[in-house]
């Protein structure tokens, strides 16, 4: 296994799937000549040519809808959003068309498409560039939603998403693009959607997180172990819809205390649903009420001083964890 970055892992997944299946194409703004705004598609244009790696104008509604139409006819497009925040001008195409066509056609029409791009805060780009719409997408039956947090997951889950026959939304993270990790080179390395991952084992408290919050949770787990001798289990959800409810319940039954961490805003955020599921299915296993840390409930702030506090950071998560112990 080689150690590569999250960005390289995505690149490998794209490259392998584009060469495996002639129906797969990558399209989006700056994906070809510019090599991707975050260099995720570096080298792909040279390898596959401009018919498969396609630069689009700044027309999210049109190129998203175009890809949905092509998927309805059997292609398997991967649409890159420079930021998921920009998908908001293509909302109709994702939420009315990609998500609903199969149902409205009584199952006659499939939409095997991937929408991907970064959806995160923490980079001081202000409110219009920092949305985390995994809750919107997961609130929409017909869509699948995943938030890989490691290079291996980025590769294995993107490959699974491309092979999936349903629309999949992948929420990546610009801060994770440089994260390094071991990634299998096997061309059929797939991480099935809907499988959570125990990122570290522990007995006293479960922290359930997704996306970059998993990395924050791991740091907090380390602090708690070192400074307080508390053993924390970190569960990385990986996939929001489908959701690995069993893994969630298992860790709750093991530690009996839960802290949920996400970068989503709190109201109707992903973890609101997770908390509901825990109380519904594992109420008797809880020794304390479920606690939760999300991004602070205001539009994303620009200033480092504000934003670093706004998104769940080590200290905020640690303080909330202490309340549970």
């Amino acid at each position: 296994m080689a150690e590569i970055t999250y960005r390289e892992a995505l690149n490998q997944a794209l490259s392998e799937e584009i060469s495996r299946d002639s129906n797969v194409v990558l399209m989006g703004e700056e994906v070809a000549q510019f090599k991707g705004s975050y260099k995720v598609s570096e080298g792909l244009l040279e390898k596959f040519g401009s018919e498969r790696i396609i630069d689009t104008p700044i027309s999210e509604a049109a190129f998203s809808g175009l890809a949905v139409g092509a998927a309805m006819m059997g292609m398997r497009p991967v649409v890159e959003f420079m930021f998921w925040s920009f998908s908001y001008v293509a909302f109709d195409q994702i939420f009315n068309n990609a998500a609903s066509v199969r149902y409205m056609s009584g199952g006659l029409v499939n939409v095997p498409i991937v929408f991907r791009g970064p959806a995160n805060g923490g980079t001081n780009v202000g409110a219009t560039h920092s949305h985390t719409p995994e809750n919107f997408a997961a609130n929409t039956p017909g869509l699948k939603v995943i938030c890989p947090s490691t290079p291996a997951d980025a590769k294995g889950m993107l490959k699974a998403a491309i092979r999936d026959n349903d629309p999949v939304c992948i929420m990546e993270n610009t801060i994770l693009y440089n994260l390094k990790g071991e990634v299998p080179e096997d061309e059929d390395f797939i991480i099935p959607l809907g499988k959570a991952r125990v990122a570290c084992e522990g007995n006293d408290l479960s922290i359930i997180a997704h996306g970059r919050s998993v990395q924050v949770a791991l740091q907090v787990a380390e602090t708690l172990q070192e400074k307080h001798g508390v053993s924390v289990e970190v569960l990385d959800l990986r996939s929001i819809r489908p959701l690995d409810l069993e893994a969630i319940l298992e860790t709750v039954r093991k530690t009996n205390r839960v802290l949920l961490v996400e970068e989503n805003k709190p109201f109707c955020g992903v973890d609101a649903q997770i908390a509901f599921l825990i109380q519904e299915h594992a109420f008797d296993h809880l020794d304390a009420p479920v606690k939760r840390i999300s991004a602070i409930d205001v539009p994303q702030a620009y200033s480092k001083a504000l934003e670093n506090f706004q998104i769940p950071n080590h200290d905020r998560v640690l303080a909330k964890a202490m309340e549970l112990l």
Binding site: K144, D164, I190, P192, L193, G194, P242, D244
Partner: peptide
């Protein structure tokens, strides 16, 4: 089916 987990809530 290749995925697992809960998909309807």
């Amino acid at each position: 089916k290749s995925s697992s987990g809960t998909i309807f809530f």
